[in-house]
Design a binder for these strands. Structure first.
Lengths: 334, 334
DNA sequence: CTGAAAGCGCTTACAG
DNA sequence: CTGAAAGCGCTTACAG
């Protein structure tokens, strides 16, 4: 015997009311006589009725589902944001469709998520590809960037001022005597999302130091293993300090340098960017910019809920949020 | 002017065919005359028609969406599994509804996901709560466990033999002279999911060593910070070796011991369990069991696709898969 | 190869 | 406070 799905129709019949009334009870609409409500609730429990969210989504045009685009779930920076996003999402009873976007066509990822009729999208990434920006400006699905921002549009975003943060940290290393500060990051941070690189350059400029191409180290992505590969190049260079985008890279490179006899921070200073637990696995612990990762995620999801709440209404919602960052000065800087 | 959604009806009208024919074209059904197909395709492109997956889901009773339950996305063990799950899912054009289950009622998480009519569920967790097992045995939604297994039911699972792995690694440390091997894990691994603890106990038994309650270290969960708290207790004990469930704990504790003058592996051996990149951040690198994390995720999702493909048909599907593990012997063991 | 029609399980005005 | 009916945008037999 096949298990039969219990529908709102069954509940209505058993409770001797209309489907509309059952719907009202399920959705907490107050326009129901208490006695009726009780009866319906009893039948719901008796039949173990479970509302079908897909049917509801089709009828109401709201799926209570949001799309979350993440480059890679195993990257601590992004997964920390995701945790904040998830917490707020479940607080507001939204489910999350998560898409790992690395190595996929971002356009396809978007299309796939949008076909599921999500009520909104939180986008995380090393940068915002033009196609994604264009697509989302054309559509009316609410869209929020978490951990990055976009100057070329008025797309909502939650981020810290990475330019200021990098400028500050690089400036400090220079103040403490660094003459040759290197910059290490994955490709997108050189061409597409230059917030951090800009800060680095500004610090040099302010100190009257010319940009030295030989001190710019680029890797394909932020994964641990890429740190090992580039570490020898950094060791071979004449750098005496390093600012890194991505804790994975920072710890791998630092360990390599230390293993090869480099004294940190005496001979070589290092600054990382996310202050994930990784920075404390190096001896000495790495100094790092400390963005409020969880909060960036949480706030971006919170903004999304506001955006989703008001359809195309044009009330003011703070659209571009810049959160404060902290600095965690540890042993890798003087 | 409000942007109007283009439906299958609009396409049918413009192409002068029925909705059924458009549906056939969209779904790649071959029973369409090539000329008709071309015409429909042209109209689809012209109108920028995007099928509504929610409507499709309601009509076909297939959502091409699977639920993925994960304790915490920031845990490298689970996020590595998730990466494998995600890759295979998108290979088969499934979207993923991800639910962070930590600190939530697992029952509620399930209900929420099931209401979205997912075609199947992959469950990751430190253990399988009774309520979840009961609920899923009652329902007919395909269900697969990733990274754990369940003796008390015939629920599908993909895992390695952690009992054998722990037995082997603890046995090796004893062979190399360890007299007092400690065991460190989060709570669930003592009471609910004892695979690893069993292996530890078997190794002791085989060596004729009595279980010493003072060498059992329990923490609330596997997060980094808990490693610091328990590390001093381990240092204060008379243990001369340690088997750890969770790389986060292993690296934190190892670093603490080293910082306090303990010589690894000369005076103290350590074995970890996941061989995530973390084990290489400690000096010396930690020896570890090396489960094929990505594959565990990938295979579990692959099995789920099979299960979803055949509804309640009873063909044989390999239900409980045990993958091979490797051992990565590094500097923390003799 | 194609179409007409019913139906998936809900919500939403509208009417009373 | 409650119900009848239309409709959300698709798919699925069924018929031809």
């Amino acid at each position: 015997m096949e298990k039969q799905t219990v529908t709102i129709y069954d509940v209505a019949r058993e409770a001797e009311v209309s489907m509309a009334t059952v719907s009202r009870v399920v959705n907490g609409n107050s326009n129901v006589r208490p006695a009726t409500r009780e009866r319906v609730l009893a039948v719901i429990k008796e039949l173990d009725y479970r509302p079908n969210a897909v049917a509801r989504g089709l009828a109401s045009k709201k799926t209570t589902t949001v799309g979350v685009i993440i480059p890679n779930v195993t990257n601590l920076f992004f997964s920390s944001l995701a945790l904040g996003i998830d917490d707020v999402a479940s607080m507001y009873d939204y489910n999350i469709i998560l898409a790992n976007a690395d190595s996929k066509d971002p356009q396809k990822v978007l299309t796939s998520i949008l076909s599921k009729q999500v009520d909104g999208i939180v986008y995380m990434g090393h940068y915002l590809p033009d196609q994604v920006r264009d697509e989302m400006e054309r559509r009316l699905t609410p869209f929020v960037l978490a951990g990055l921002s976009d100057d070329q549009s008025d797309i909502a975003s939650v981020n810290i001022d990475y330019t200021a943060a990098f400028k500050e940290m690089v400036g400090r290393m220079i103040d403490k005597g660094a003459k040759k500060v290197a910059f290490l990051a994955a490709e997108p941070y050189f061409d597409n999302n230059t917030d951090r690189f800009d800060g680095y350059k500004q610090a040099l400029e302010e100190a009257g130091i010319a940009l030295d191409e030989n001190l710019l180290f680029k890797v394909e992505d932020t994964r641990f293993k890429n740190g090992d590969d580039v570490a020898k190049d950094i060791l071979a260079s004449d750098a005496d300090a390093l600012a890194v985008v991505g804790d994975e890279l920072a710890v791998t490179v630092s360990n390599y340098l230390i293993d090869n006899g480099v004294k940190i921070p005496e001979d070589f200073q290092v600054v990382s960017s996310n202050n994930s637990p990784l920075v404390d696995l190096v001896r000495p612990h790495l100094s790092s910019i400390k963005p409020p990762l969880y909060d960036i995620g949480a706030v971006s999801m919170r903004i999304l809920t506001k955006l989703m709440g008001k359809a195309d209404d044009d009330e003011e919602i703070e659209n571009k949020v810049t959160l404060d960052y902290q600095i965690n000065e540890q042993g890798s800087t003087k």
